[in-house]
Design a protein around this nucleic acid. Structure first.
Lengths: 174, 174
DNA sequence: TCGATTTATCTCGACGTCAAGATAAAGGAG
DNA sequence: CTCCTTTATCTTGACGTCGAGATAAATCGA
């Protein structure tokens, strides 16, 4: 019979420090939200490393997967893409420019709205994103290996609750 | 008696799209990790908005709080600061420069290691960070209002499990 | 049909971050 | 003591993102 040693992460130390310095404040929100922020930063680094072997940048992957998920003919408007990736319109224009220059997507005028443009994945783009995505899933599965299946589900459900208000039909990012 | 309507977030839609397009892949890792990433992005926006009323940037807050948590005399080395904030050394140098120019911190040579420098919060810096922190906690508490106390604890514990491997005594960010 | 408003995308300058390398001091082996 | 390695910080240039504003077409009401 061994003791369940309480393993600490950086946020535990951070919260303990605050309790020492500002015992008047209730810092429990940090227990969740600081962990989300910090984990996200670590994930971003892991992603970057994973994509390096596919000669792909994180931002490229984000855009290409959004198009891939759309299904044939793998085509979306820039507006739909920026909503999917949570970046601003200026950023998305820039990204599409570079992806088009790399031959992974093409731009064409929207036949039904002369203000609009449609961005479509090229066959080369489809191939690239499929390879990178399979690899990413492999690596992400490893990161989650510390949690049982049912724990992963519980975690996902809790996160969903926090996310729903943001993903409600209002958000605007122009 | 009402039905528990299954509320969807953007990740549910994303996962459903992948299942349609790539039924051969198990995309369950996204249920957790995509949510972490997306929630983090939303949080960063909320933080930015919160700090705007204190005329403060997110990056300033990150550095100032690290010093504040250290306790009197509110002093840390640049190396300790970059480990606390997960940025690279070049970024930290830049940040310290700007905070010093704003009169919120001062730099002084480390008396015990002539390679080193120590960064100390000024009284003005302490005041600024305390005000912003109290406000941030208020807003973060609202974001978590959708979860019961015990759910927040469960969520924190699950996230800790994922975070521990990253925060182990190895990580290096130079 | 005209004008005002909304929607869709792009342009551009400012800015922060990263990654690699430079500098310099400390620590360890022999 | 000297050399080599490690540690700590800063410098620099490239790059991506943001945010505000410009352009242009679509939509709606009078």
């Amino acid at each position: 019979m061994t003791f369940q040693r309480p393993v600490e992460d950086e946020v535990d130390r951070l919260v303990a420090a605050w309790k020492q310095e500002r015992p008047d404040l209730d810092v429990t929100p940090l227990e969740v939200l600081s962990r989300v922020s910090r984990l996200s930063r670590h994930l971003e680094r892991a992603r970057r490393a994973a994509f390096a072997s596919h000669d792909m940048e994180s931002w490229e992957f984000d855009v290409l997967t959004a198009l891939r998920r759309a299904g044939e003919p793998y085509e979306l408007s820039p507006g739909a893409l920026l909503r999917a990736t949570l970046v601003t319109s200026g950023t998305m224009t820039n990204r599409i420019d570079r992806l088009a220059a790399a031959g992974l997507v093409i731009r064409r005028p929207d036949p039904e709205d002369r203000r609009g443009v449609l961005v479509r994945l090229t066959p080369a783009g489809v191939h690239r994103v499929d390879a990178a995505f399979a690899d990413l899933l492999r690596r992400e599965r490893e990161l989650l290996a510390g949690l049982e299946q049912h724990e992963q589900q519980a975690l996902a459900a809790l996160l969903r609750t926090l996310l729903v208000p943001f993903d409600a039909p209002d958000a605007a990012t122009h």
